[in-house]
Design a protein around this nucleic acid. Structure first.
Lengths: 211, 211
DNA sequence: GTCTATATAGTGATAGAC
DNA sequence: GTCTATCACTATATAGAC
């Protein structure tokens, strides 16, 4: 049997999950609190009890996601294997719909970004998210460089925002018109920033990735 | 005196301008048709007469903006002078609030991108906009290369989406936290992609741009 | 903590006068 | 073409029962 506290925590998570999926799918403003509640098999009263109002729900959602994206990126970057493959894998995390809740992980990111730009309290949460992402990328860049696989045009901390920008910017174009950004172009861009393939201490072939 | 046709065209433009400013400032979904009409000194009836409904207004707005952004980018890229300065100028067009309607040119862009991702008819308009932007950048890249100032990592058509991605992606991070993306970092990224400064047939100094 | 019911206000859209 | 008035619908938020 579930204790009251377990039920409370469960409801909270259900509401957050439902909100994330619906916001990504239809947009934040287009989704009513009632809709979120119903998707979580609760009523609007539950939302108000937990989060006060829609803004509270948004802030809670942003906070709960701070570590999630970081985990995804870290997973991609920590895979053993060719460094070049890692960058492509990272690109696919952005470009292709990963398992996640709905198909639209990045759509939710863009929704939240826009929201944070207009609601001061949310801004700090999202800024922290981006900071964490940059920190992780910088760490990987440092590792690449130490192994002699990368030839960075600057410090890892300078290059990190560039990598993030490239991924996000290409994803935006890719989503609108996939043909405009083939995988090869993404690889070209990421290599240009990281200097990967420039030093080239790699022994094997590179045109075709066997896997 | 204004003829009826002039008044009609004037109303249409006023409505589009008001919509652009309000959508950028508060978000598309948060702005009612009544609000748009009142900001243009008209009533909601005028909006319905001109555009049918809100979706019609959005499509008309997207269409009217197709050439506008292209004009801005073309202006930045056609300025005579150091090629390095041109890239920085282009970055400032994205990072700093240019004169435009409201201060939030890029916010409107993000609103429209998100909207186009959920409304098929609008998608084509926005895709055309991006295509045009890439075409312009590719043209400049070709010129840079011909002058021996750039050392592109790929064809101009391949590099164009990379430049656009870098600009947009850095702008997103910059808007959330300006300190995270100083001008020098942006310059670093753009140079890494364009190879500008690599071939270095340039005679003058580079650390400090005299102007 | 959660639900039901309700108060209050705002939305997109239409009809008809001018 | 534009405005006024009005439609049906949906939103957020609250009060009180359980």
């Amino acid at each position: 049997m579930a204790s009251q506290e377990e039920r409370k925590a469960d409801t909270r998570q259900r509401l957050l999950d439902a909100a994330a999926a619906l916001f990504a799918d239809r947009g934040i403003e287009a989704v009513s609190i009632d809709t979120v509640a119903e998707a979580a098999d609760r009523t609007s009263g539950a939302v108000y009890a937990h989060f006060g109002n829609k803004e509270g729900l948004l802030n809670a959602l942003l906070e709960s996601l701070v570590n999630e994206t970081a985990a995804v990126m870290e997973a991609e970057l920590s895979i053993d294997g060719d460094r070049d493959d890692q960058l492509i894998a990272l690109w696919h995390t952005f470009a292709d719909p990963p398992p996640g809740p709905g198909r639209g992980w990045m759509l939710l990111e863009h929704e939240l970004w826009l929201y944070a730009n207009r609601h001061e309290p949310a801004r700090a949460h999202l800024a922290a998210r981006f900071d964490e992402a940059r920190r992780l990328v910088a760490e990987s860049m440092r590792a690449f460089e130490a192994e002699g696989h990368a030839d960075l045009p600057g410090t890892p901390e300078e290059v990190a925002p560039l990598v993030l920008a490239m991924l996000v910017g290409l994803e935006m174009q890719h989503r609108l018109d996939p043909a405009a950004v083939p995988d090869e172009t993404a690889a070209l861009g990421l290599r240009a920033i990281t200097g990967l393939g420039a030093t080239s201490t790699r022994p094997a072939s590179r045109k075709k990735t066997s896997r």
